[in-house]
Design a binder for these strands. Structure first.
Length: 612
RNA sequence: GGGCCCGUGGCGUAACCAGGAUCAGCGCGGAAGGCUUCGGACCUUCAUGUGCGGGUUCAAAUCCCGCCGGGCCCUCCA
């Protein structure tokens, strides 16, 4: 690519011209365009088209240049390359492992995602978070960052207490043949909430249980720890089925029991960031001082309660302590132990261990409804540090259920509706994956009737999870997703299987061809070949921009376009039956395609299948 | 009272942040076609669209202001 840009620079020695390149909308307008004349028009007070004409008039093309023609058109300067030469350069570049890799950013980044209350199974809303988070982890790793993938376990909140109420107070059996997270979320939690409605006094019991869990070291807290562990394992099983796992699980009880909160609270007091309310309705509470900050000043009651009048701490308070740990603003008080595989968990009795926390940057994947709470955390950090804290709330829209799907679950609604764990109005990820896997299995078997059962299952599993992941991250993060059980089972059109299929086809060609011959410039180049080259040429810019914005959507869009161009190419340009230079070129083009698609897959978490 | 997000053909989305060249792309659904083919989870063609009103600009889906619809958030829940 550099080669191309430096050629242009030689012709048109203007500053910053590299940043003004874009793809022309139509092939008749050339292969690359610059918008620099529109910028110059403002400075020079001349119409853009005149400047373009002047510049083009002064250009003298050397012989044998990569650039064959330069044209002014409506203020744009369009470059026409020798397409065969350009193709050779691009294909050679794109086949390299390093193609598209940005300059490495070595900073340590903590990405927190999923963070589902450990009292239920993951539903389709939670999985949007996990899919985004895992893709962001992948993108940051690609960019060279040292990434810690963390899941925050809110094991001291009321939702866990509700389950314990069910077991301990209502005497619901803890034995079940169901997957344990589903049993607790679908059955126990819903039942307990029904009892609350009929018998509000029971809620006092819950508050007792919450306090016992916070204090730790008693029968109730031990039971809660055990139940949480079992639910958490079941949740992680679902995530593993999605191809997602963590480096660390941070339990909220650890924030309390390790005294991390106490230290954080003391630091907040020392920094004069909090005060105790002496009178009024908030008497006895500790509040975070936000009223003098411009982003909160307009609120009616700007200051935020972080500690209750009975001395217990609110969620936001614990979140502040946790954020301080993320950024190394506080000493690491956690003990750590292994929680299966390579995943660590914070544990009161665990050992001291360096290497966690103290990141240069953190990204919290949390849905948009918590923007205010996240702003409070960020504000607290800035009050405590004398440097800029790179704390990022990555927000995204929620997932709602379509009218039809809600009705299928037995609820009467007049439109798409929010999910509710309390009411039992939700769709579990396990169920969606199950249905997707079944469908993918049938489709795969149709095409590979002789294949082994194990391979079929494995392939179906990979198709299913890729499809679900892609569905969750291919659209803009600010959009609300309306989940429809029927609609989501599609495996054609703009879906992961479409991409996987294109990839599998390309590998088949390469496999049949044997070792690809050495790349040589073809004598001529067809339109579809040229479109392939153009798509491959766009890769570095797309990845660079997507990594900078942490935009999963841009990678998805690029990958879809690339595969779609490949399918067209595949349709009208035979590779194996081509001859001589053309065959050599096409094979290398296919190879470059496969390599680039693999990178896209790696970035967003789609499985690259050789066969499907 | 304050703040955030969304509004693009029947449905779902892209382009908006960093305004530009064309039929405003694409997928689903609808209509019509394509296997003497390296795998039809594919390809080709057609129909239908920027919520409303102003402003800025040579140029607005994009920026600014005001409406109208929908969703969300703003202290002892998480």
């Amino acid at each position: 690519m550099k080669e191309i840009y430096s050629e242009i620079r030689k012709l048109i020695p203007l500053e910053n011209i590299e940043n003004t390149f874009e793809s022309p909308p139509e092939r008749a307008y050339g292969d690359l365009a610059t918008t620099i004349c529109f910028l110059l028009a403002k400075q020079q007070k001349k119409p853009p088209f005149r400047i373009a004409e002047e510049i083009v008039g002064s250009v003298k093309l050397p012989k044998n240049s990569l650039i064959e023609k330069v044209e002014a058109r409506g203020g744009y300067i369009n470059f026409f390359f020798n397409r065969a030469k350009l193709a050779t350069i691009v294909v050679a570049e794109a086949a390299k492992k390093t193609y598209g890799k940005p300059k490495p950013d070595r900073r340590r980044v903590i990405v927190e995602h999923t963070s589902v209350n450990p009292n239920k199974a993951l539903h389709v809303g939670h999985i949007r978070n996990s899919c985004l988070g895992d893709a962001i982890v992948r993108m940051l790793k690609f960019a060279g960052n040292d990434v810690q993938e963390v899941n925050y376990i809110d094991d001291s909140g009321s939702q866990v207490a509700d389950i314990i109420v069910g077991f301990k107070v209502l005497g619901i059996s803890a034995e079940t043949a169901m997957k344990f997270d589903q049993y607790c979320g679908n059955e126990v939690y819903v039942r307990v909430n029904k009892v609350y409605e009929a018998n509000p006094d029971l809620q006092a019991k819950r508050n007792e249980i919450i306090r016992a869990i916070e204090n730790g070291n008693n029968d109730t807290s031990k039971l809660a720890d055990k139940v949480v562990g079992k639910i958490l394992s079941a949740q992680l099983e679902t995530l593993l089925r999605m191809g997602i796992s963590f480096d660390l699980l941070v339990k909220e009880t650890s924030v309390l029991r390790s005294k991390l909160w106490d230290s954080a609270f003391q630091m907040l007091k020392d920094a004069n960031a909090v005060y105790k309310e002496a009178e009024g309705k908030n008497s006895g509470c500790w509040l975070l001082k936000l009223s003098d900050r411009p982003e909160f000043a307009k609120l009616e009651n700007a200051d935020k309660i972080i500690s209750r009048s009975d001395g217990t701490v609110l969620y936001t308070g614990k979140d502040i302590a946790y954020a301080m740990w993320k950024h190394g603003l506080i000493a690491d008080k956690f003990g750590y132990s292994l929680f299966g595989g390579k995943t660590w968990i914070t544990e009161a009795g665990g050992r001291k261990k360096g290497g966690f926390g103290s990141a240069d940057k953190s990204v919290a994947i949390v849905d948009v409804r918590q923007s205010y709470a996240q702003d409070v955390v960020a504000a607290a950090l800035s009050m405590l540090a004398n440097r800029k804290i790179d704390y990022n709330h990555y927000d995204y829209g929620v997932v709602t259920l379509s009218k039809k799907t809600a009705e299928q679950l037995g609820f009467e609604v007049d439109a798409a509706t929010h999910m509710s764990g309390r009411k039992g109005l939700f769709v579990n990820v396990d169920d969606v994956l199950g249905a997707l896997e079944k469908k993918a299995y049938d489709e795969t078997k149709k095409r590979n009737s002789a294949a082994k059962e194990k391979w079929l299952r494995d392939t179906a599993r990979k198709i299913a999870r890729s499809a679900l992941r892609y569905e969750m991250i291919k659209i803009g993060r600010e959009n609300t997703i309306t989940f429809d059980a029927g609609e989501s089972l599609r495996l054609d059109g703009n879906t992961a299987p479409y991409l996987q299929y294109a990839y599998a086809r390309s590998l088949k060609i390469l496999e049949k061809a044997g070792k690809p011959p050495k790349l040589a410039a073809p004598d001529a180049i067809t339109d579809t070949e040229s479109e392939m080259v153009k798509a491959l040429m766009d890769f570095p810019a797309v990845v660079g921009k997507a990594a900078e914005n942490l935009s999963t959507q841009e990678i998805c869009r690029y990958a879809f376009n690339l595969c779609s161009v490949f399918n067209k190419f595949y349709q009208d340009s035979p590779v194996l039956r081509a001859e001589g230079k053309s065959k050599a070129f096409r094979l290398n083009l296919v190879k470059a395609f496969a390599t680039t698609v693999e990178k896209c897959f790696g970035l967003v978490g789609i499985d690259a299948l050789e066969k499907m």
